[in-house]
């Protein structure tokens, strides 16, 4: 493995190890997602058709709301014991650190998303199991794009006074293309449509991922060292 990837892998493993041992982040995130599942049902139920029609939007609202929490935590953790200074001083490519943090957040969010999709099928009594493989692909692509911008902004806002408000305020408008494309793709996947109508949205979503991954890799260094 190249030194770049090795650094990214090390940061990723560190984040996963912290999560595995402390479990507070993953637990809180899963619990929050489950709560959202209940809240959505109280807000829209008990009419099953209404829930079913709103499902793609509900999925992504839940992913994004929980994602903002997860992102905020990913850097709040580094603030403790000055871990962030350690990362900054490490003689490693800052882009690799970005990639590692991004992978860590993506993995955490994906875990939450799998749990959320499963819980939705069970609690809402919906037969969505056939669509799950495609849903996971959409979830992966959407989460990478969301976390690519989110990791950058989370690093900026982690030590600011107004971080809880500032992160969503900066991140959500920029993430609108992800939301639009992912909701549309989720809708198509749940409806069992072919790949044809989904293709332009895939291009948009993957284009977003690539643009903001590159932008993040290039600008993360400035953010960390500022």
């Amino acid at each position: 493995m190249s030194p770049f990837l090795r650094t990214a892998w090390a940061v990723f493993r560190k984040d996963i190890a912290v999560e595995r041992r402390a479990k507070e982040g993953a637990n809180a995130l899963g619990f929050f997602a489950l709560l959202l599942l209940f809240l959505f049902y109280f807000a829209l139920g008990p009419d099953g058709d209404r829930i079913r029609a709103a499902l793609p939007g509900l999925f992504w609202l839940a992913f994004i709301l929980a994602g903002v929490l997860g992102l905020g935590r990913a850097f709040a953790l580094e603030q403790e014991n000055d871990c962030l200074d350690g990362l900054i001083l490490a003689p490693a490519d800052k882009g690799a650190i970005y990639l590692g943090k991004l992978a860590g957040t993506t993995a955490l969010m994906l875990g939450m998303e799998v749990a959320f999709i499963t819980a939705t099928g069970i609690f809402y009594n919906l037969d969505i199991w056939a669509a799950v493989p495609r849903l996971l692909l959409v979830a992966l692509a959407g989460t990478v794009g969301f976390a690519a911008v989110g990791t950058l902004f989370a690093a900026m806002t982690a030590h600011l006074r107004a971080r809880e408000v500032l992160l969503p305020v900066l991140l959500l408008p920029l993430a609108v293309p992800v939301l639009l494309a992912a909701v549309k793709l989720t809708d198509l996947a749940l409806a069992g449509e072919g790949w044809g109508p989904a293709w332009p949205w895939w291009q948009l979503l993957l284009g977003f991922d690539v643009v903001f991954l590159v932008a993040g890799l290039l600008t993360f260094e400035f953010v960390l060292e500022a």
Binding site: L170, V176, P177, P200, L204, G207, A226
Partner: peptide, 29 residues
């Protein structure tokens, strides 16, 4: 001030990159 300038510059770049993507996504929407 220096940190504000750097952060703002990064957001200024990322925001401008998003302008065409937002344009197309919403257009299709």
């Amino acid at each position: 001030p220096e940190r504000a300038a750097t952060y703002a510059a990064v957001l200024g770049i990322v925001g401008a990159l998003d302008v065409p993507i937002i344009h197309f996504s919403v257009e299709w929407w």
